[in-house]
Amino acid sequence: MRYAMAVDTLKCVGCSDCVVACQTENNVPIGFCRDWVVEVTDGTYPRLEIEIRSERCNHCENSPCVRCCPTGASHYAEGGVVLVTPHKCIGCGACIASCPYDARYPHPDGYVDKCTFCLHNRVEKGLDPACVSVCPTKCMYFGDLDDPNSPVSKVLKNRKYKTLIPEAGTNPQLYFLL
């Protein structure tokens, strides 16, 4: 099993509903967020191009954060989802420094926190992650890459896509449809 997510940059309008849904679903402490929206403007007026991306942890297959964690708190869970076990985390910050996407943050309670793909609270119950299910333009696809009929497999088969900083060698599992 290999969980992955695809975000359609052509459908995303940057409304930030995914951010609010995540904060509500996962009790993200006030002032923090596990996902965010990036807007890239390219060109010179009037020839402008815009790309909007809803970003979060890339759940990399070769995660620098899992590699550098001294206690094993950062680990690969079911389907390759990268998770942090709070009671094993010492809050040393190594994983935060190691993430090229700056996807992690220190939770006010001390441990390091990040996107979980809603693995335990939703995905294991057969639901989509909160950000995916709430998206008003339905621009996000989630599922198992090993299953050819999952929404994410289907959309990646038919569309052009990219990942973020593939040259960092992390093999990210968050895909952006172009």
Binding site: G14, V37, V38, E39, V40, T41, D42, T44
Partner: peptide, 8 residues
């Protein structure tokens, strides 16, 4: 010119 910002 390319400008990249976090809008959320």
């Amino acid at each position: 010119m390319k400008e990249e910002i976090i809008v959320s």
